[in-house]
């Protein structure tokens, strides 16, 4: 109990004093995970819409696959991306290993299935409501998918946020492909892991509390925005 209280005080101090290194680490965390979320949405949402609206062989198998991949172990993704980006790997010549770009790639791979699977669910619900109207107006399935993506944009924030939450909270993948290099690829979760290794548990927990606060702030902002938008557009 004493240690948890110490952590709370420490977290408060870190935030209050505006620790520059901490700020840089938080910014990098946000930059990496926002980028990964953005790219994952660009890939996952259209994919989810096609899975919801499309009729093609293997569709059911793909749905099950993506649902299953929502539980991808970050370490496995990290290893996979590491082997791809390593100098000895197929993408080695790009020299991306141990850069923020590598972390973005790993997190993107990790959360595309989450975004796609949740987007499919959302779009499928919309499709049930819109289907006859869109067909009556003569919209093709592809066109319908695009329309539903745009029309479901407020509900789809949930799938984006789920992906973001998973991305910013994971440590296994970014540790492997980022290398936790001080000032280059050190993000909140890898810092927490490092401080835990050093046995500085109160500092590690304090950083954890700050991470939770950051994630909560992002979710709150998204929630308020969505409330406003839904009130405006119905």
């Amino acid at each position: 109990m004493g240690e948890i209280a110490t952590s709370l005080v420490l977290a408060g101090e870190l935030v209050a004093t505006g620790d520059e290194r901490l700020a840089a680490i938080v910014m990098l965390s946000l930059q990496v995970s926002f980028s990964a979320t953005l790219i994952a949405c660009l890939i996952g949402m259209p994919l989810g819409a096609l899975l919801a609206v499309g009729r093609f062989p293997g569709r059911r198998a793909l749905i099950v696959l993506f649902n299953g991949l929502m539980g991808l172990p970050p370490v496995v993704v990290g290893l996979l991306v590491y082997l791809l980006l390593s100098r000895a790997g197929p993408l080695g010549p790009f020299g991306l290993l141990f850069t923020p770009a590598a972390m973005i790639i790993a997190q993107t791979v990790l959360i595309v299935p989450i975004v796609a699977a949740l987007a499919r669910q959302t779009i499928e619900d919309e499709w049930r409501e819109y289907r006859e109207q869109l067909r009556s107006l003569g919209a093709s399935r592809l066109r319908s998918a695009m329309t539903l993506l745009w029309d479901g944009r407020f509900s789809l924030t949930t799938s984006g946020l789920a992906g973001f939450g998973r991305a910013i909270a994971e440590v296994g993948a970014v540790m492997i492909v980022g290398g936790n290099i001080d000032g280059v690829t050190r993000v909140m979760t890898t810092t927490i892991a490092l401080e835990t290794s050093k046995g500085d548990l109160p500092l590690a927990l304090a950083l954890g509390l700050i991470l939770i606060a950051v994630v909560l702030a992002v979710n709150t902002a998204a929630f308020v925005l969505r409330q406003w938008a839904e009130k405006r557009w119905g």
Partner: peptide, 8 residues
């Protein structure tokens, strides 16, 4: 996206 790409 572009900003992100150039930033890294």
């Amino acid at each position: 996206l572009l900003l992100v790409a150039t930033g890294t």
